[in-house]
Design a binder for these strands. Sequence first.
DNA 1: TCCCCTGCGAAAATCGATTATATTACCCAA
DNA 2: TTGGGTAATATAATCGATTTTCGCAGGGGA
Lengths: 243, 243
Amino acid sequence: MLEQTPTDGPAGARRAQKSRTLWVFEQLRAEILDGRLNPGARLHLAALADRHAVSLGAVREALSRLAADGLVLVQDRRGFRVSPVSIADMRDVTATRIEIEGLALRRSIERGDAEWEAGIVAALHVLVRATPGLITDPVLAKPTWVGLHERFHLSLISACGSPWLLRFRQTLFEQSERYRALLVAYAIGGRDISREHQEIAAATLDRDADRAVDLLAAHFNTTTAMLEQADRSGASILSSEAS
Amino acid sequence: MLEQTPTDGPAGARRAQKSRTLWVFEQLRAEILDGRLNPGARLHLAALADRHAVSLGAVREALSRLAADGLVLVQDRRGFRVSPVSIADMRDVTATRIEIEGLALRRSIERGDAEWEAGIVAALHVLVRATPGLITDPVLAKPTWVGLHERFHLSLISACGSPWLLRFRQTLFEQSERYRALLVAYAIGGRDISREHQEIAAATLDRDADRAVDLLAAHFNTTTAMLEQADRSGASILSSEAS
DNA sequence: TCCCCTGCGAAAATCGATTATATTACCCAA
DNA sequence: TTGGGTAATATAATCGATTTTCGCAGGGGA
């Protein structure tokens, strides 16, 4: 009854406030998103529990939540595995994402106020400053860039007013990130991302919905096309190997 | 080693083949969808475990999966509760559903073949036969009608070719069902649903995408409008009471 | 030689007890 | 009488052991 500190635990509260389940959930999510866990790999409950120093139940619950986001596949009685990837799925993710995010962008353009505009300008500025001109060595690109990139895209659609659209967008965004991580591993540089972002922001602030959505679609399609090309020429990135 | 029947369990295998977790998951899902569990109600782990005769862990995992579908809200360290309802959420669900399902319908109209058309005709026929003209006593409407209704709507968009669109549609459909169940409890009859369905099917088979989507939107909006009206006039259906 | 059946080992699923945390009720002092 | 703090209780979170199930290898029969 002594460690029951009234306000908060100042001492050894390194990771307190967070349930163990949430902890492994975030760990595993990150590992899947940046490709440390291969698509299709089997997820051994016991091994994961041991590695992250938690019980089976915690791992099980974390994996269930990941399955909900489509990052993990659960086969009744046969355990969990990382969701496989495929070109067909990547195309579907991209196409659906264009529709969803395009919809959200149109709504934001209709409804956004001055504060929304300010958010875009701010996010774009920070992002461009963090982008080193052309991406030459994407492998070493700071992980912060990924966060800033997401923030920029979120700022574009933040005024859409639909929690459900944003929720679906988030799911598709995570799926896209997974494919992008695979691409980065085999990356080909020579793409002026900053310019693309600036053009999208400009069209949005001009309230030119059609043009903004077109640019956004092209932005997404370029990444997908690059990955498709890399898959065809190079080794088969998009095969779901087991671990 | 004796009850290990080769083909299937003929004897006392009432719920075999299914994991306990899946069992409670389906039970709870059904209870939430048809309103037996009130929106906002707290979900006592121990009570649920006792009621369904399973362990805490099973209930916990089932609730986690429900949370993924947005039917249950999980508050870290403070347990689970049935997702609350609100007019704002209902409007968002309806509007987003119109967009998603409209999109899927357009794609189906573009890509659908003869077999797709046949599926629509068949589903419509069965549904209309099961619909007793005007719905006068929806409370007693056979639960099968709900299944046939879903099947009809699924048949319309089955040719869209996008698993992700279908996935999101499913999520929104479940949310809508929950609101519809609340409406049924206070139902007002006098709506010619069969006619609406027939018109949607006709426009779809004519490949008139714009008209089909408009009719579909009206179909969804009518239900929402009725519930909004019922909420304003009658008791506050859309308040999230605890159990 | 090929296929089906039976046993063995590994892994997932389940459980109930234990621990940590939040909420409530209560008491004392101002 | 009221507000703040403390103890008591309820409940969620966690764990490790146990049970059940699945996949595979070996043997027997066609």
